[in-house]
Amino acid sequence: MDTLVEIQDVTKVINGRTIIDSVSFEVKKGEVFGFLGPNGAGKTTTIRMLVGLISITSGDIKVLGSSISTDFEKAVSQIGAIVENPEMYKFLTGYQNLIHYARMSKGVTKEKIDETVELVGLVDRIHDKVRTYSLGMRQRLGLAQCLLHDPQILILDEPTNGLDPAGIREIRDHLRMLARERGMAVIVSSHLLSEMEMMCDRIGIIQNGKLIDVQHISDFVQGKEKVYEAEVDDPAKAQRLLKNKYPELPVQITENRMLLPLVRDSIPEMIKDFVQADIKIFAVREVTKTLEDRFLEVTEYKGGAEHDRTDSK
């Protein structure tokens, strides 16, 4: 797969404060890249640099090989973007807004505008003033505005902000379709974690202006070793047993459950030991971590206490 966007060691300093600190990642064709971070982490700032709204203090951003700072027009012609909310001219109709943006790119025909309106499902209301639109309609119009000039890269800052579940689902389906069928590279930022899980192929976590992790979504959610939960009648006894066998294993006990970070292959062995020691086993199950768990773990507890949680799902 070819790389469409390269962010190379980008730093942004505003008034002596380092807001983005040496961030590097790349996004490939056909991929949905999630940009995840808590409020004030620097997602919007990074996106602003990506589309050339603010300057880059050091480092570079390349879009299909063209630098956004030295070759702005060429680079940005391949980008469709919404930065924060999709603010449109409220006193114009949706259609007039699209005409406005169409005039600013080369070769956007009337047919293309109509086709885009159809794609985002705004045919009924496109000739109404934007002032009368609901938030969801504005998001759709924002998306239409991004797609007019057939860019290869789509950048959306919190595209699901303020949408209802149906709207969120629709945006998600759109984005996946655009990545799969048109081979676009899509970058979305969000702090809606469950969202990202369903929408993205890869995820970059940003916190305090630093990119702390970039992982495939499945790797990310699972981490390297899995956690199993065992429900037994005498956890203390079970723990002693395990301690003998795996002295290093950090076992956590809560009432009658134990959390065990183990590799899958050692599970049957453990059950056998328990049965022989006359410990009653009610259940052993794999704990699937949600993105939220992982996210909080990576951002807040990074390097701190291990999986200290009792419930799963």
């Binding site: 709204l53 702005f72 060429k74 012609s77 930065v83 603010e87 449109m88 790119s105 505005q145």
Partner: peptide, 14 residues
């Protein structure tokens, strides 16, 4: 003040 400047300046134009 309308916030439209963001969409205005991300077009392939100086």
């Amino acid at each position: 003040s309308w916030g439209t400047i963001k969409l205005l300046l991300i077009r392939p134009l100086k």
